[in-house]
């Protein structure tokens, strides 16, 4: 219930209507959107029960490891109602053609594989919010100071997922496990996304805001 309440409002991409469509414009729009979503996601993390009790250093380490998984999982959940399209924002939906134009066809296809997986499973909002918190708590940072505290956070979130599934999906006793088993593909997809945006950064043609750059550098 706390995670459902903590879930941030949708934000808007607001692509500049005066700039002609191009790969640079699409990537600039996405990087700007990602930067604003990151600010929102850091605020969200503080509402995960137990997260604010971690040391500031461990909160930072988890976010530095897990931020892209959180961004992608949010795009995936928003896209569940559509067919072969990614809802980066309510006003920024990418189809195959736009993905090609932005040079994001491979990455977006990888994200669509996750969408397909969750569609088949019938992912619910309750499951989505817990999985997102689990992805953060389980982001496998190499720099955790108090790994027992992080383990306790993982246990609490894992317990919440199991309780939800026991109550709402008694017909499938393995549903919680199935949910957890989607996380490797999320990790893999996030790694691809990081790699792609690191090479865009090196290219230097797309302006990026400071928080996005800071977190991209944490992964480099």
């Amino acid at each position: 219930s706390l995670l459902l309440v903590a879930e941030p409002e949708a934000i808007f991409a607001m692509p500049d209507p005066t700039v002609p469509e191009s790969d640079i414009k699409a990537l600039t729009t996405l990087c700007d959107l990602a930067d604003r979503e990151l600010v929102v996601n850091i605020g969200w993390a503080k509402h995960i029960p137990g997260f604010p009790s971690l040391s500031l250093a461990d909160q930072m380490s988890l976010l530095q490891s897990g931020w892209m998984e959180i961004l992608i999982l949010r795009v995936v959940f928003r896209s569940l109602a559509l067919e072969d399209k990614l809802v980066y924002a309510e006003d920024y939906i990418m189809d195959e053609e736009q993905s090609k134009l932005a040079g994001l066809l491979d990455l977006n296809n990888a994200i669509l594989q996750l969408v397909k997986k969750y569609k088949t499973m019938g992912l619910e909002k309750e499951e989505f919010v817990v999985l997102k918190a689990i992805a953060l708590a389980n982001s496998d940072s190499m720099h955790i100071e108090d790994s027992e505290a992080v383990q306790r956070l993982q246990d609490v979130l894992h317990g919440a997922l199991q309780d939800y599934e026991t109550t709402h999906h008694p017909e499938d006793p393995r549903r919680a496990g199935k949910m957890i088993m989607t996380l490797p593909l999320l990790r893999q997809t996030a790694a691809r996304a990081i790699q792609h945006f690191c090479s865009i950064k090196q290219d230097g043609r797309v302006p990026m805001h400071k928080l996005f750059l800071e977190l991209l550098e944490a992964k480099a």
Binding site: G43, L56, A57, M60, K210, L215
Partner: peptide, 15 residues
Amino acid sequence: KEKHKILHQLLQNST
């Protein structure tokens, strides 16, 4: 960790 100033600031803000 010094490099991650914005993340640090955002986590320290109370909102």
